[in-house]
Design a binder for these strands. Structure first.
Lengths: 239, 239
DNA sequence: GCCCCACCGTGACCTGCGTCACGGTAAAAA
DNA sequence: TTTTTACCGTGACGCAGGTCACGGTGGGGC
């Protein structure tokens, strides 16, 4: 079955081929069946807002593929990206479990399949399956760690250069799982978005990336970034 | 039973008088008994480090009373306070559940009673009691929200004045539970610590608090801070 | 009483980076 | 093809706030 967005549709969690590779979905057979019954599958185009800051929670969203940008914004229109969620992550947990309105907006970066589960179904689901509760808790610890890393990046860095270096290093760490510790990575973000990740401005990011290129620390070809001198990058990030 | 630190000791969770007021401890009778069997109670003086950044997790710490300062620091010695944990909160969850080393340090602000639970006891505890798992998830959502609020404060504010105003407003929100929405609050932190909460410096905090006093927005008497003009404070915080 | 130490208060300096402004390039739309 | 739109690149300027330096004050130990 093919969707109009051009990727394979996977209606069934039970038969899902990547289920065991996905932390949250890799649960006991009885839990998967419950999950399958309780969820509803949708397909959205890039740019779709799964939920918006200030909305009361409807439920949780399981990202089956693609990525989503999670961000908040101030009244003045300034935006800060809290994290980039990847396939397999669950979004909207804090609001659903906390019973309070969403404090951030989730926007799909690419066209994605998303499994939705209403709040009361979800709470029942994790109450009945202790392994699912564990997975949920694990997802939350991941979120906490990511947020703390964000705080460390924003608060402990003396300069924007340091923040940018930290971000690039963080990305090299993420992709480490794919090839053998290659220093090449995909950077499919525009300068403005990078600025929003580190709490800076578009111009400053442009200038700093330019300076890093000139210093032969990195090389940029389109959306590909190659770290030529990881040591110096680490030094810039404060070791 | 009185401890050498001058407060009442409560060895028994089952008989604990404040148990029902504490989110995490307010669980089913069978769970409380399990908790009681699995935990060990200790008393520590102010300044005790429950765990340190980089340590492998030993377990989780339930703060029975008092407060704890949770912070990380950079290699250059710069410190940022992630949150102030209050009585009833559980510390060290991320490391214990994630199975990874602590990414922050927890230091007692006052002398406290702390209930400790080793990692494997804790995982068994929440696997056996779905209500306890729920409480744990709830605590984690709280942590996430706090961290996100931190990111918003650090990343979205244009000026340090704005960050400070946000922090003060956050505090007025916290104490709202005590008297009837009074604008008076305890601020038992030194300027340096406030600086570490908003990612600034001691001198700047001194200057800004001075300016707020001069503008009649707040009044400070020892450790007590009175917000005279909440409207203006909100305006400074970006509405 | 006295000293000491931890904090607060304040002035002077200087630099990082936010802001504004405009020009270039490349892909998409027409 | 030309036009439009979305990003990137770069110069000029100004100021918020970090840094250094030193002086004041209050409380606890002796």
């Amino acid at each position: 079955m093919r969707s109009p967005y051009g990727f394979e549709i996977q209606e069934s969690c039970v038969a899902c081929p990547v289920r065991h590779a996905r932390e949250f979905c890799n649960v006991s057979p009885s839990a998967v069946e419950d999950l399958q019954r309780s969820k509803s599958t949708s397909f959205y185009p890039a740019g779709t807002l799964l939920y918006i800051e200030g909305q009361p929670p409807r439920g949780v969203y399981i990202l089956c593929n693609g990525r989503a940008k999670v961000y908040t914004s101030s009244k003045q229109g300034k935006v800060i990206i809290l994290k980039i969620a990847h396939a397999g992550e669950v979004l909207g947990l804090e609001a659903a479990l906390g019973g309070r309105e969403h404090e951030e907006t989730a926007e799909l970066v690419e066209s994605c399949q998303v499994n939705f589960m209403a709040t009361h179904d979800f709470t029942r689901y994790i109450a009945h399956h202790s392994d699912a509760a564990m997975k949920t808790a694990f997802q939350l610890t991941q979120d906490c760690r990511a947020a703390q890393e964000g705080i460390r990046c924003l608060g402990l860095s003396g300069s924007v250069e340091e923040k940018l270096a930290r971000l690039l290093l963080h990305w090299t760490g993420e992709t480490r799982s794919l090839p053998h510790r290659d220093t090449r990575l995909k950077m499919p973000y525009k300068h403005e978005e990078i600025a929003q990740m580190i709490g800076s401005t578009r111009e400053t990011v442009t200038r700093l990336l330019g300076a890093l290129k000139k210093k032969k620390v990195v090389e940029i070809k389109g959306a590909t970034l190659i770290v030529k001198d990881p040591e110096q990058l680490k030094q810039l990030a404060g070791e």
